[in-house]
Design a protein around this nucleic acid. Structure first.
Lengths: 189, 189
DNA sequence: CCATCGAGTGATTGACCAGTCACTCACATC
DNA sequence: GATGTGAGTGACTGGTCAATCACTCGATGG
């Protein structure tokens, strides 16, 4: 009988490591211009073995995306806990702060941007919707805020992505200052 | 070889036609997964000639993006004119409506999403910043609104992009309804 | 000592794509 | 009707990448 269930097998550990590498690499280059070989190299693995761990490139990207939204949800949950019992606006504010901390290294943020652009691949669009649903419902339930406030929360999150993608906090200009005003943007690494 | 019976045109006219084709094709596939040959085919041109009209793939994409923001600015300007003399909120509202009409066919919207994802290419990032600067300043000057209102205007524009990218108005679900509430999203096509 | 099984890889394949170049053809002008 | 110029293309190159497969190696168990 083979060992079952008790300890994590080596291939499962590898799969996790590959997902970590995938987040970093896909965040940097996006879906279409990141070769599997780049992910493999970062995970210290041969490209061939990646295809043994994941059935194809898409499913690796989806796995990275799922993990990304899992981390986001976890951070939001922590933020909400920091303001437990306060009014909805305050709770959402704390959740936003927790999100800003999480994406300080930019990888999780850029992965979401790239995923949106690659959403013509159905599996990717599904993963994004799944993640966004989780985030939206979490924000609503944990804060108790109304629809409008939650909508605004997500909208400003998107604005935050735009600001970070374009480095607006470094490119001076009146217009850039207007867009970045009051947004808790990540310092670059 | 030139097709028999085809009349030659000026290279400037061709360049415009190629930019039109580029907007449509890049909007569909994004920067990295759209081959020049797809743009050429849509413009009824050989791939080789595209490289005679534009020095490379990037500059074609940038040309498409420049045209995109030009059209956006024009639409916003028209919208502002519709509410001339009214208060800032009303003017911004009209500008938003004009934008929603413009991007009804989705191409100009998706091109912006893809451009954001491809912003690691410096020329593309520059083009996006240029366009966004134009839009932001236009919104501020024509509406007379304060920074916060303009920021909100752009943020909800980004949310609108997200909703359209993911077809949220068609995928039912409470959370989707929350995000799409009150957004004047484009009907498809 | 042999058999088995899972981790992991090298080599390869088949497709695709950005960019180049030498070339042909249409047209205007003299 | 010869000629120069610019429009437009076919054919090719060098490179990249997703995916596959036959293989090795080491551990485990009988």
């Amino acid at each position: 009988m083979t060992k079952r269930g008790a300890t994590l097998s080596t291939s499962d550990a590898r799969r996790d490591a590959v997902v970590d590498a995938a987040i970093a690499e896909f965040a940097q280059g996006g879906y279409h211009s990141t070769p599997i070989s780049a992910v493999a190299a970062r995970a210290d693995i041969s490209p061939a073995y990646v295809f043994k761990l994941f059935p194809g490139k898409v499913s690796l990207f989806v796995a990275a995306l799922d993990r990304c939204y899992e981390l986001v949800a976890h951070a939001l949950s922590n933020g909400a806990a920091r303001a437990d019992g306060e009014d909805p606006g305050k709770i959402l504010y704390e959740m936003g702060g927790a999100y800003a901390e999480l994406i300080a290294d930019r990888d999780l943020l850029m992965l979401q941007v790239h995923a949106q652009s690659a959403a013509d691949t159905p599996e990717i669009a599904d993963a994004v919707r799944r993640g966004l649903a989780k985030v939206t419902e979490l924000a609503r339930e944990r804060s108790g805020a109304g629809g409008e406030q939650v909508q605004r929360f997500i909208a400003y999150g998107q604005l935050c992505h735009l600001i970070a993608t374009l480095d607006l906090d470094e490119h001076a200009g009146d217009w850039a200052a207007v867009l970045a005003a009051g947004i808790r943007h990540p310092g670059k690494n």
